[in-house]
Design a protein around this nucleic acid. Structure first.
Length: 463
RNA sequence: GUGCCCGUAGCUCAAUCGGAUAGAGCACCAGCCUUCUAAGCUGGGGGUUACAGGUUCGAUUCCUGUCGGGCACGCCA
């Protein structure tokens, strides 16, 4: 199962957060349903975006060396770029300082005063930077990649999202897998040349148009490495391959499945779950979101503002293919308005009761032999039924890729418990009744714990 | 313009992939703490499921159209 797979070109933002929360929860649910799940993050460390980040960082570094070139509008504007430049400066001082004439050589004179804003000019700057820096370019490239990836990994870890495999796109090129995938398609006659580029006949498999795999300039497209990546996934022997993508990539599905089919693989083994965008609202207003301009709320800021538990719960409480309005003010309110506390509170209450009962582990074992005949009122019977439902709920959530079903279930279970709590005393003198009721709430405690765990939400003993 | 997704209570969303009186939370109104945690409980109002047709014993669900919103339509990733 592959998810997040954000470009390591800047901090994760709240949009990535949803994919992370959904993917991690779904992986947990699938594992709980009995599947052997491998969690994978595909690292786009080979593309042009990394070059732009490298250039951006170097330009910021030059500024620190009193070399001022108008910062390109389509470069990475974020403060974190300056931070990385600062780190390089502190470690290597003026080592990467070069005269601006070399960099601006073949650009229009106006580029000295006014920031450039076209892709062509940006690519020229990148090409020049590679020429001027030589070996040093690779150092900066590697430095910013390591920085961003480390930051990303750390960020996700603190969000309770961990991966078994971090798969490098660059490794596909280094190991010749891209070349092999392309040759394979070639040998099956699914490729052709036109306008100097190499095209894949994706229209043979229902796509709207054929797609370029190798550009006129010799560069492979992202699609090319993606074909190699998916071929590699299948060759690793997974029974089922699951991708979680942002909904803006939905147009990408036919070409990837088409490529698999062309390679003689079963496209039905690849399931793609689309996650819609999350839109943040603060004070009733939309919060701005744009990676390139540096104007976005980061996942880290979100976690600091609303806390991990509320963030994880809010992200998965909606069906993933629905747009999500994320109300920051609601998520961070620590009152009855906030649904995450409702479930956690039920758990904490049970812990409190069990603590006051004071039994130890041996006593708890006795509870499992409690006389359940004592549980007879409608609330108790409803709770028993609810607990019995849990395995089916997990199975359904797994089958439909819908962790939100777990969230709804937990809220219902917590609701029935709270109601029970208010109507019935547990620590009553009659031992037979007491043990039966304690056995019931201990079971609820267990299921709440399991369910919250699947969602990546903590189950506190005290609140 | 073409394709995909969506439209359910004032707000945010469910509805076991065609079943019985469409359910929760928030907000609003009225009650409940000398008893295991009031981040809780009890009760109440709130709907022509965007609209118009069609299929069906039965439609929020399936089909067609209209209106409204999102996304995608690069030799970008």
């Amino acid at each position: 199962m592959e998810f997040v797979s954000a470009n390591p070109t800047g901090p994760l933002h709240v949009g990535h957060g949803r994919g992370a929360a959904f993917g991690a929860s779904l992986a947990n649910v699938l594992a709980a349903a009995g599947f052997n799940v491998s969690r994978e993050f595909y690292v786009n460390d080979a593309g042009r975006q990394m070059d732009i980040l490298t250039l951006s960082t170097w330009l910021r570094y030059l500024e620190m060396n009193d070399i001022h070139i108008p910062f390109p509008q389509n470069a990475y504007q974020g403060e974190y770029v300056k931070t990385m430049a600062q780190l390089i400066y502190e470690a290597h001082a003026q080592r990467y300082r070069h005269h601006p004439d070399l960099l601006l050589g073949d650009l229009p004179e106006s580029a000295r005063e006014k920031a450039i804003d076209t892709d062509e000019q940006l690519d020229k700057l990148i090409a020049n930077a590679k020429k001027i820096l030589g070996e040093d370019y690779a150092y900066i490239h590697n430095f910013v990649l390591t920085e961003q990836l480390g930051d990303c990994r750390n960020d996700l870890m603190e969000f309770g999202v961990e991966f078994d495999v971090w798969f490098s796109e660059q490794s596909l090129f280094d190991n010749g897998l891209v070349a092999r995938a392309i040759e394979l398609l070639q040998s099956k006659h699914y490729l052709y040349q036109q306008d100097g580029a190499t095209w894949f006949r994706s229209t043979d498999f229902g796509d709207e148009k054929d797609r370029v795999v190798q550009r006129e300039n010799g560069q492979f497209t992202y699609f090319a490495s993606d074909i190699a990546y998916h071929l590699n996934k299948f060759e690793r022997g997974f029974d089922q391959v699951i991708n979680i993508w942002g909904a803006d990539h939905h147009g990408y599905i036919p070409r990837v499945k088409g490529a698999l089919q062309a390679l003689g693989l079963d496209p039905a083994k690849l399931e793609i779950a689309l996650v819609q965008f999350a839109v943040l609202y603060r004070d009733g207003k939309k919060a701005p979101m744009s990676t390139r301009s540096g104007e976005f709320v980061t996942l880290r800021e979100l976690r600091e503002e609303v806390g991990k538990d509320a963030a994880r719960f809010f992200y998965v409480v909606r069906k993933s293919d629905q747009h999500l309005d994320f109300d920051l003010d609601l998520a961070k309110s620590k009152s009855n308005e906030n649904p995450v506390y409702y479930v956690q509170y039920a758990h904490a209450r049970i812990c409190s009761v069990l603590a006051q009962w004071g039994g130890d582990f041996v006593d708890l074992m006795q509870l499992t032999h409690a006389n359940t005949e004592e549980l007879s009122n409608p609330g108790e019977l409803a709770l028993l039924q609810k607990l019995i439902d849990y395995p089916d709920i997990v199975e359904m959530a797994a089958k439909e890729f819908s962790p939100h079903i777990i969230a709804f279930y937990l809220r219902e279970l917590a609701g029935e418990f709270h109601s029970y709590y208010n109507s019935t005393r547990f620590l009553v003198p009659e031992i037979s009744v007491q043990h039966a009721r304690l056995a019931l709430i201990a079971s609820i405690h267990q299921v709440l714990n399991n369910g919250l765990n699947l969602l990546g939400v903590s189950a506190p003993d005290k609140m």
